[in-house]
Design a protein around this nucleic acid. Structure first.
Lengths: 226, 226
DNA sequence: AGGACACGCCTCGTATACAATATCTGCACT
DNA sequence: AGTGCAGATATTGTATACGAGGCGTGTCCT
């Protein structure tokens, strides 16, 4: 008998210290609580969590692989600064991946999907905290892509999303960024409801490109030296 | 004066133990020197490199983030097994990204590019070691994508490549995998020479899909239990 | 004033040590 | 034979300890 898969509570996945720290540090970096190029002092973090440096270092190594920090020999880890050309490349890839995701997802969407997306949109307009905006923003994207049933693709999108979320927050707090995002989200949702994958794809593309553009316009011009 | 950027040897990047170990472990995993699901004993690796467990663990944490190993609480790291559905998804994403890369690259290719690609193709046919095949295979792809001037995209492709390289080796050693790869590579190169980005893109797509297909046909059927 | 060196402090990278957990083994019991 | 339990052993995850390299400051020399 192949053991009827009742959902057992998957014992033995109590997180280790290094995992907890990874999660919190990641969120802190994504949330913009560190300045770019700011070094992360291992001892400080260790004291903060009441642990030794070892799990902190392991967490930082993970985040290094995720591209959120960079180690400099004997100087420790600093939060990565994303150059403008790189930012453009990241958005270019986002377009590619997210367009594909929505294309695959639209045919599989159900009333449940729309209801969930609707809820997130509602919450979005009522939310005042920037951090929560960003969370809801991602939640909506994830909700729309989930029916594609492509966990690998969606994880990839998320990891890329994580890298630029700091900037997305900037963009949403800037100008009428939030209203515009809300408006565009609803348009996308409508296209999905209509089952129009092409239109949804096109709107997602415009949405992402638009965010990238306003970002560029409002970024402190970091290319000028001195 | 903005200091004429002569390429200084970037001192202060002498690799740490954990970096060296990361590199070697990664290559070992990619090269298929570990079986899937095989646990990696920290002490063993440490002894091998004549160090303590600490840098080994840090290396493993990096590789975990790269998706090459998975940690299980109190049981350490095991080499990740890629399920068939996930494999399919990975190849789907590869198509998307590599098609984009070649599209962007073709217009920027120079004689230098073609000469380099030609050299790699030559080396490929003369090579008998499977590990070197795989290296040259990647070298060729990288060479063709490089003119796109999209380091972010190319790094992404490489990290995905790394995840499946074990399987690519299988495929190339199987059947007439290598000859076929060589043939297809040359076709792609021809299209690039002709400046026909659409055709190159199409060939890349077929190439990747073809590899995926033969892989599926020859994989030990891992879905049947008992 | 400016450069060369010495000293001290801070932080990193890693070795060693140890408790907690998993895994193995043998033995008693049925 | 199969189950349950008690050590013994192996392996992990983390704390502590320490050497080595960066970096600031002061002092000396010219």
């Amino acid at each position: 008998m192949p053991l009827p898969s009742f959902n057992a509570p998957n014992l033995g996945v109590t997180p280790t210290a290094s995992e907890v720290i990874t999660k919190h540090l990641r969120e802190a970096i994504i949330g913009g609580h560190f300045d770019e190029d700011e070094p992360i002092r291992q001892d400080d973090v260790a004291r903060l969590f009441n642990v030794s440096k070892i799990p902190v270092r392991e967490a930082l190594k993970r985040l290094e692989a995720e591209g959120l920090v960079v180690f400099q020999r004997n100087k420790g880890a600093v939060v990565t600064r994303i150059s403008e050309p790189e930012l453009a490349q990241i958005f270019e890839v986002r377009v590619l991946l997210e367009v594909q995701a929505i294309r695959l997802a639209v045919p599989n969407m159900t009333e449940e999907t729309f209801a969930q997306a609707e809820r997130i949109c509602q919450a979005f307009v009522g939310e005042t905290d920037i951090g929560h905006w960003a969370e809801l923003n991602w939640a909506l994207h994830a909700c729309l892509y989930e029916p594609a049933k492509r966990p690998f693709l969606i994880n990839l999108i998320r990891s890329i999303h994580d890298k630029v979320e700091r900037y997305l927050r900037m963009q949403m707090s800037l100008s009428a960024g939030k209203d515009r995002a809300d408006h565009e989200h609803r348009e996308i949702l409508e296209a999905c409801r209509a089952g129009d994958a092409d239109k949804a794809a096109m709107l997602i593309e415009q949405h992402i490109i638009g965010v990238c553009r306003t970002l560029y316009e409002h970024l402190p011009n970091r290319l000028t030296p001195n």
